[in-house]
Design a protein around this nucleic acid. Structure first.
Lengths: 139, 139
DNA sequence: TTGCATCCCATGCATATGCATGTAGCGTAC
DNA sequence: GTACGCTACATGCATATGCATGGGATGCAA
């Protein structure tokens, strides 16, 4: 049946499937550990940490206080609506601040608050430790 | 500050972070594509497909009609409750059948229905094509 | 200017998930 | 046999997510 497909290559198919299962396993184990530990200790999850990290990185690189939401949205893997709610949650808990963009009043800027920077600074080593503990050694 | 940590190794930290971001990106892109395409064509998502595949594999290996829920639960990366609901959904849509385990009446067996086998047979090549299109080439 | 398509973000809604808990069956110690 | 703890699965609840849509801002064409 599958032999009718001229491109069918059982070995390649198996390799792909194993690669995919490794991604699923890594993602499940690591994100679960991050959600649990960072959630308990700092009240943030994987998405919150990723956004804090992007904001912190942009701050370092560009020496400016905020980033366009649209740009940030591309760097965390969320739908536009989920990203909008993520920023709203983090603003509510005091980690970031939204402000209108002057040039284009459709857009908004998102900036770290001092509390957000501090939370990131504390969470980062925990995050890195979890990665070291849960990610498979690179072969 | 981080220099106080004797194990601090910036290069290793960067490598770990990049590895984790690659996992996040692969997972997001591929699972999104699977959910969309298999959802549109066959009414199933990533979790449903993974469970169909495990059941199909166990059938091939063990030549028996069902598997203990607990065993299956370990092979899809879901909490016990999410797994329970996944099986319930799939039974409701006719892909699997639950039956009580005779030896231990706490446990349940989960078995593919003919419809479940057929759905898996049709979905599998689409699934594999998506993996080939979205997973990064192994370096 | 006006009209219209497009862009950026917010929100209603349905759903999948995890945590905590409930329920029933099993096994062991006494 | 009884009581107690443990196991296997189901369910109430809160929440994060995606899709579809809404609403305001922008830009362009006529």
């Amino acid at each position: 049946m599958t032999d009718l497909d001229p491109d069918h290559d059982p070995a390649a198919e198996t390799a792909l499937t194993q690669q995919w299962r490794a991604v699923l396993a890594s993602h499940a184990v690591t994100s679960c550990a991050i959600d649990r530990e960072l959630g308990d200790a700092f009240g943030i999850g994987v998405s919150e940490f990723e956004l804090l990290e992007r904001l912190w990185e942009f701050e370092q690189e560009e020496h400016q206080s905020g980033s366009r939401a649209q740009v940030l949205s591309g760097s965390v893997h969320l739908s536009q609506s989920a990203f909008s709610r993520l920023v709203a949650r983090m603003e509510k808990s005091g980690l970031v601040q939204r402000s209108l963009c002057e040039n284009d009043r459709r857009g908004i800027f998102v900036a770290l608050t001092d509390e957000g920077r501090e939370r990131y600074r504390k969470a980062r080593p925990v995050h890195r430790r979890i990665l070291a503990e849960t990610l498979p050694p690179q072969g």
